[in-house]
Design a protein around this nucleic acid. Structure first.
Length: 877
RNA sequence: GCGGCCAUGGCGGAAUUGGUAGACGCGCUAGCUUGAGGUGCUAGUCGGGAGACCGGUGGAGGUUCGAGUCCUCUUGGCCGCACCA
């Protein structure tokens, strides 16, 4: 009988219905004796359709979820939508549909696509951040943060995106351009709401050390982003107290180089610069010029150190006779440290560049060990290495660390204008998080501005502040500002006419706590339920793209702490994500026609291979140039649509291919050959399982007492694969897990092929039953639909999705006799077969008796004989 | 500029974490089968050599009985931050 082909188009929807009916993937919050496991993939933005990156991300998460479910865990595996954001407004502007209608339509489409992937998600916990039932709680959190002092409202120079007409966080400015629009960012003064993440700088930094299951790369990026530095705040006496100012304060991490100071430099925005500019028009012009360059790409690339002498002088704190000039300089930042520095040209490259331009000199005060100070001169390159102090009076001969300590100890007790000259200070690069956005499609900030009472919180009973439906996008800027009625409300405190805050929150706020909401999404009264959070948090395995290494993950870590402080998260939950995995991208070849236009893979036919590989347009047959392999992107049109692949080959094939070959953290190249191979393998498994169904014992046969050679070999392969694949999945090495399935199917296939007699003995029939069940169960996390169909074929009438993970027996994998490689001088020259538990002496004797060893020795004596038990033997001649 | 990662057959990659380099897949070669909508099977596939054997993990050194794995230098590629005092 010719076995029928496996038809995923029929089987996949069938099993998806069966799973849904049996509600196998829904997880309640009622108490359970099982250990919990929370696996989460970064939730998608509902852009319209899922892409291959989603398929890869969710296939990985689903393997982890299904494996842990089989291992006996209570698994939480939810899904939702990061649904606020600019594209909805842009779509609205283009099509006229409201952002809400556009977003919910996209969610419906994408939910259907995710369901067609057969993911074991608990859809009963689905949330969308744009839904009032979600953002109501976010507004509550904002108000609680405000009451707890974690929110600030202040004037701030902000990054303004002139195309999107909105404020951007520092993190959203990439090379001086808006992360979304690509427009050159301008600086503007606006009143903004800030979340005071900088209060947690130290905690967020220290917490990184506890995140052992995070990639080192991500921890390092966050460490650098927080940017802790230890230094000294130093107050210089201003000569003659200009403008009534007695001192100028600078921040330095190198107080040891104080005797090398040649000048002070202040930022263009420094208050002293403004005062000096009032009496010096040329300085005012210089400041205006610096500001106009702002953070533009041109300014950063030019990177030329420029300054303007204010004419002010300060006294050197260790040399009262020495006066230093004060410059306004373009490379000094107002929002780091005190906005002022002292310049030591010999030991800082920027200071040296500046000094050389303005002829301020450079005195070396640190000399590398082993170099004669008399011959040590700084010309073009500043020296920032280790060494001993020179030209520094009482510091001479000290190491840098000793000199830092000596300067600090000398100046700390000294007073100047009623305050210590020096103060130890820790600085951070991390700034507070400006969350105000002048957009419609975001979470409204629940504040009412009253002329008499100021910024008044919306009473909790009035939440949510719901976005109005009737808005238009025919003018740039924020439609909420232009809405005739929405913003006009009475002040909750005095009852006078007042105005709603029309700014909405940065969408990164929405994604900073969704993983907490998933623990109890049904809770209408509170953002979270303490017991549910305690039960499910932390997320055991979080999976997503490396592009979120800093922003999203840092904000989520901050929110977890801020919510703990405001009573929404138990204090025991220190970190939100115990394990983090960042998966690679999905790449594809790109194609361009003769006119240079990008052509999609679906429009192309490939012929030949290697050098003779050519691509032709399906329509017309014209040859198209095969371009480099790069990230799938709309702009280069090198995208493959998951829907088309699932319709063609089935979800299991797409999932299997996404998990094959490339290690999950690395980029994978989507190829037609790869999909074909995956599709062929599904059919091969189907045929093999069909054959084994005819040869294997019925389910539940008692284990025979003894096994013959063939049956033992089958069992060895089965249990070997089972033990290995469990380790691979737990370590997220999906590519190796895939190769184990190939390997086991090859071995079972060979065993079937070796059968000669029509009567299969009982021991082998048992081994085949065990083998085929294990085979199906170990590929089930990756190809769950095929697994269900195979399970039925082998006479099981329950669901694979409900089966426990089988238990491997390590004893079956071991052999009674083992073959050890024998090296002579580190090179493999022979094999030796010994009993598994043979002692060292026995192994040595066996090795020395080998023909190959005697030949290789050629009568020379053995200098050393190393036996690594169970591994290898090395003969040193 | 500062910080980090990576380099293994024609290709994606594996290597029990210092112990037989190239598992598994793709591609390719040969043969058989099938015979028209994504076939299937068998054998081979790092290089040299008929062979025993010799060489081989970007390059050069080193540590070690033993190095793809550890150390130093070097070449190439990728990523993050970017005037942070």
């Amino acid at each position: 009988m010719i076995p029928e082909r496996y038809n995923p188009r029929e089987a996949e929807p069938h099993w998806q219905r069966m799973w849904a009916q049996a509600r196998v993937y829904e997880t309640g919050n009622e108490p359970s004796a099982k250990p919990k496991y929370y696996v989460l993939e970064m939730f998608p933005y509902p852009s319209g359709r899922i892409h291959m990156g989603h398929v890869r991300n969710y296939a990985m998460g689903d393997v982890v979820a299904r494996y842990h479910r089989a291992k006996g865990f209570d698994v939480l595996h939810p899904m939702g939508w990061d649904a606020f954001g600019l594209p909805a407004e842009n779509a609205s502007r283009a099509s006229g549909a409201s952002p809400a209608a556009w977003t919910y339509r996209n969610i419906a489409v994408m939910r259907g696509q995710l369901k067609s992937m057969g993911l074991s998600l608990d859809w009963s916990r689905e949330v969308a951040t744009c839904d009032p039932s979600y953002y109501k709680h976010q507004q509550r959190l904002f108000l609680d943060f405000l009451a707890a002092g974690l929110v600030d409202r202040r004037q701030a120079r902000v990054n303004w995106d002139p195309v999107d007409m909105t404020v951007l966080a520092n993190e959203q400015v990439v090379d001086g351009r808006g992360w979304r629009s690509g427009a050159t960012v301008e600086q503007r003064e606006l009143t903004q709401w800030f979340l005071r993440i900088s209060l947690f700088s130290d905690e967020l930094l220290a917490g990184l050390d506890t995140l052992e299951r995070w990639p080192e790369k991500v921890r390092l990026m966050q460490r650098n982003w927080i940017g802790r530095s230890e230094g000294l705040s130093l107050r210089f006496a201003l000569d003659g107290e200009p403008f009534g100012e007695a001192t100028l304060e600078v921040y330095t991490t190198r107080p040891d180089t104080l005797y090398g100071a040649k000048f002070l430099a202040i930022a263009a925005d420094h208050p002293l610069a403004a005062l000096a500019a009032e009496r010096e028009p040329a300085l005012a012009a210089f400041i205006a010029e610096i500001r106009s360059l702002g953070t533009s790409v041109a300014a950063i690339e030019a990177a030329e150190k420029r300054g303007f002498d204010t004419g002010l002088k300060v006294a050197h704190p260790l040399d009262p006779d020495g006066l230093l000039p004060v410059y306004v300089a373009n490379f000094v930042l107002m929002d780091y440290g005190t906005g002022a520095i002292f310049g030591c040209p010999a030991h800082d490259q920027r200071d040296l560049d500046f000094s050389r331009r303005y002829g301020l000199g450079a005195t070396a005060v640190v000399c590398p060990e082993g170099t004669d100070p008399a011959n040590f001169a700084i010309v073009e390159k500043a020296y920032d290495g280790e060494g001993r102090l020179i030209n520094s009076r009482f510091l001479d001969g000290m190491t840098i660390a000793q000199a830092k300590e000596a300067v600090t100890a000398t100046l700390e007790p000294r007073m100047l204008d009623g305050a210590p000259v020096a103060k130890r200070q820790v600085n951070y690069r991390l700034r507070d998080w400006g969350i105000s956005r002048q957009r419609y499609w975001g979470c409204p900030i629940p504040i009412i501005h009253c002329a008499g009472c100021g910024a008044v919180p919306v009473p909790l009973a009035d939440l949510p502040v719901v976005l109005p439906d009737d808005v238009s996008f025919d003018a740039p800027g924020n439609p909420l500002d232009r809405h005739p009625a929405w913003g006009q409300v009475p002040c909750p405190r005095c009852g006078e006419a007042a105005r709603r805050e029309t700014d909405t929150m940065d969408t990164f706020v929405d994604s900073s706590w969704y993983f907490l909401r998933f623990t109890d999404p049904w809770n209408e009264a509170e953002p979270t339920d303490e017991a549910a959070v305690a039960r499910w948090m932390a997320v055991d395995q979080y999976i997503g793209g490396i592009e979120h290494a800093i922003l999203h993950l840092l904000y989520a870590r901050f929110f977890t702490r801020a919510m703990a402080r405001t009573g929404h998260v138990p204090a025991a939950v220190a970190e939100p994500f115990a394990g983090l995995f960042t998966q690679g991208m999905v790449n594809h070849e790109s194609y361009r026609d003769a006119a240079g236009a990008w052509v999609t893979p679906a429009e192309v036919r490939i012929e030949g291979s290697g050098e003779a590989r050519h691509a032709f347009k399906l329509d017309g047959g014209a040859e198209v140039a095969i371009g480099p392999v790069e990230k799938m992107s709309k702009s280069h049109r090198n995208v493959v649509d998951p829907d088309a692949i699932i319709a063609d080959y089935g979800a299991d094939t797409a999932r299997w291919f996404m998990l094959s070959d490339s290690p999950p953290e690395r980029d994978v190249i989507w190829t037609e050959e790869g999909v074909q191979a995956a599709a062929k393998f599904t059919q091969r498994l189907w045929r093999l399982v069909g054959e084994l169904a005819g040869l294997a014992a019925p389910p539940g046969m008692a284990c025979p007492v003894t096994f013959g050679t063939e049956a033992a070999a089958v069992r060895k392969a089965t249990h070997g694969a089972l033990l290995a694949i469990g380790e691979d999945i737990e370590a997220l090495r999906f590519n190796r897990a895939v190769s184990r399935v190939y390997d086991l199917s090859n071995r079972l296939s060979a065993a079937v092929g070796a059968i000669e007699a029509p009567d299969v003995p009982d021991d082998l029939r048992f081994a085949f039953r065990e083998g085929v069940e294990v085979l199906v169960l170990i590929f089930a996390p990756m190809m769950p639909h095929l697994a269900e169909s195979c399970w039925k074929t082998i006479g099981r009438d329950d669901l694979v999705a409900r089966q426990p993970w089988p238990v491997g027996d390590p004893d079956l994998v071991k052999e009674d006799v083992i073959t050890l490689p024998v090296q002579i001088n580190g090179r493999k020259r022979a094999d030796v077969t010994v009993r598994r538990d043979a002692g060292e002496a026995e192994v040595k004797a066996a090795v020395l008796a080998l023909d190959a060893v005697m030949r290789a020795l050629e009568g020379r004596p053995v200098r050393k004989l190393i036996v690594v038990p169970g591994r290898i033997v090395n003969v040193v001649v």
